[in-house]
Amino acid sequence: MEILFYIFSILIIYSSIMVVASKSPLTSALYLILSFFVLAGFYVILDMQFIAAMQILVYAGAIMVLVVLVIMLLNLEKYKNIKTDMHQKFISGLIFMVLFVEIALFILTGAGRKPTGIFTSEVIKRVGNTQVIGEFLFTKYIFPFEISSILLLVAIIGAYLFAKKRF
């Protein structure tokens, strides 16, 4: 387990850096797919196999197909050599450092809460991963579930309106 965690950490950080740093958008998209798969591996070693399957189906399947299709649709070859000015690099580096120090301090000095719930990994393994999630999703969180269906409907109508020829 430990060695898997370190392999996954190195892979996901490397692929995320390559998403930001690579020149071509298509290379970024392929590295992003790699990072989605590695994140699914993280979910498996955290005993959440259902979320790992959802990650691969929704992110690496649906969303990345959409992104690669849009990259193919827009001809971006002409705009590869646009350089950033030093002003933007300085300010964003400053924000980057402050945010990183903030997160590191919060993690290192955060108060350690004790585990409170009853769903230990033995219970989840005995009952079944999907059943536990489904019981929570359709009883306690039924109202956000219905709201999210309306959100998806709004997204469909919005995407149709944006992609139309004339507004």
Partner: peptide, 22 residues
């Protein structure tokens, strides 16, 4: 924390990300 609520949040974040992608 031995809870499942965080996993439900992850599902909702995935829904929002799909809507945002479109």
């Amino acid at each position: 924390l031995n809870l499942v609520d965080g996993v439900i949040f992850v599902i909702f974040i995935m829904v929002v990300a799909a809507a945002e992608a479109a």
